[in-house]
Design a protein around this nucleic acid. Sequence first.
DNA 1: CCGGCGCCAGACAACGATGTCATGTATCAT
DNA 2: ATGATACATGACATCGTTGTCTGGCGCCGG
Lengths: 332, 332
Amino acid sequence: MKNVADLAGVGIKTVSRVVNNEPGVSEETRQRVLRASEQLQYHLDITAGSLKRSGRKTQSIGLLLPSVSNPFSGEIHRALEDALAERGIAVFASSLDDDPEREKKLISAFLGRRVDGLVLTPIARSQAYVIPEHSRNLPMVFIDREPVGIEADAVVTDNEVGAAKAAAHLIRHGHTRLAYLGDRTDIQTATKRRTGFLEEIGRAGIATSTIPVRNGLHDEETALRAALELLTSENPPTAIFSSQNLVTFGAMRALKSLGLHHSVALIGFDDFTLADMMEPGITVIAQHPERIGKTAAERILARIDGDDGAPKTYIVPSELIPRGSGEILPLS
Amino acid sequence: MKNVADLAGVGIKTVSRVVNNEPGVSEETRQRVLRASEQLQYHLDITAGSLKRSGRKTQSIGLLLPSVSNPFSGEIHRALEDALAERGIAVFASSLDDDPEREKKLISAFLGRRVDGLVLTPIARSQAYVIPEHSRNLPMVFIDREPVGIEADAVVTDNEVGAAKAAAHLIRHGHTRLAYLGDRTDIQTATKRRTGFLEEIGRAGIATSTIPVRNGLHDEETALRAALELLTSENPPTAIFSSQNLVTFGAMRALKSLGLHHSVALIGFDDFTLADMMEPGITVIAQHPERIGKTAAERILARIDGDDGAPKTYIVPSELIPRGSGEILPLS
DNA sequence: CCGGCGCCAGACAACGATGTCATGTATCAT
DNA sequence: ATGATACATGACATCGTTGTCTGGCGCCGG
């Protein structure tokens, strides 16, 4: 900046005014400065600026996702990025792998970069450790899962309601022997989906104690084995609800390998590419990651702009998309 | 930092020494400083540090992808992140949407944040406009596509070879009436795949002029229409090669809707989730995004560390994965 | 007993920008 | 002509940190 000022024969502050489009610079000087910065390939250093700038905004936020390679996370990321790009805010993205240690380490790394806000999928048992930062006015929005041990904004899918819709849908099609395949119980959404599913079954007058529930399935392989075991048991279910994508894939493989894909019903939580191209099409409870991302962006921007209302949880409704597998009728 | 120094009753520089683990501080003082920073919830500001620090490293890089919601990009992103996290380097990620304007704008935004390097999928017709930055020693690694108009490192899939493998595979299975469905011709990889595909056909002694080639397909919808038109034409192909995921999906839909999915062969470039669960399984030329990401990370780190060898293009081999659709024999 | 050396520690400038304030000059009403 | 007013501009301190340099102190050998 100094060099530009010298070349243009003006003061350093005038250069600052020009590149920031501040008023109070004559058109002639402005042109001279612009020519000089062009010539020197000058580029404003926004990190240096944010040191002194009022509010100290770095125009960047940190985004913590289960994994950037997870398509669901990718959609959220994209929606968020688009909304923030309009304001010139850049996004640091990173993956947690559902590891509480990584969560803490990465938050710390972002804090060190003085991000203007944090958008995150929490995994640690409690987020109480960030209370100091949060109350020190660091905007935070939790997505997909609600925070524990701290009051903060959150944007989540209506997990219980969605899972209940799946149960109701299966029951309406005549099923009474339902089964639940779910993720690790330390993942909040998995637990909520199980609760919603079982409660709806209870409301329908079916004894939930008769419902086989398999938890702790975190990948396709374990889900496949659990499903196989279930389907080859004494009194196999006529309908399966799987709480998550990978679990759904495992269930699909199990059904197909046993030749039951046209006779046992399946509803999965979470939509996925090509679900409609499967044989049969897979009925799902679809979440809306774009809406989650967009809402999270709105919230974090509002907080950055000083909104200090009470923290609130925003719920994005899920949607049942019938495609065939969930409409299979029980044989017996 | 000043506050910590005051509380600990030491000079500000001593605090700096402690938090940076520099030698020359007595154990006692060190403990006192650590206690003080604990008490004040002090967190080192690495952006301020990078202002004066030697080399001015901000410990961050910029990553420009077609879209962060694209699974292929997501895999690359993840591999890159993992490799860079070990060095404490954070990643700014953003989406280009194959828009040259966005490319320039985002590069500029990252430059303003003084990233230590840039990893990008170029889309603009030429990247000559970044020559000043690059020669001013900004490390850059291009991924997936090679840069035009500038000499820089690149990590790419062997597109021609991969496409040629697809052609050879189909020809080996007896096909002579092949068709090509491809992406926009301004996308480098699409062009290379077409070239590789057609050249292999030529080598097999088939007149390439007889091969229907449809370019400019950028989404599922247009691909679907192009495939339908092709398949219902006078002399329909017995095998299709699609140059990209979305195009493959369009082709799959077309085949299924015409009931031809078991009689017309299909090979797609790019692997995708559930390809093996389709009916039939979809044969693909798989790329290895993790390897692309990992290699790109190694290169950018080497450049950041001062490697100033001549720019080089690194080629990551593709792999043909037979799953059924590519092994369908011609009827006639 | 003294000079020299090593160790710890702090003072100070600097990094690249912005906020504040003072200054100079032209313009205008009186 | 004069003081007030507006506008254009630059000097300077400052943001939070690190690099450099200097100083005090204890210890050692001569």
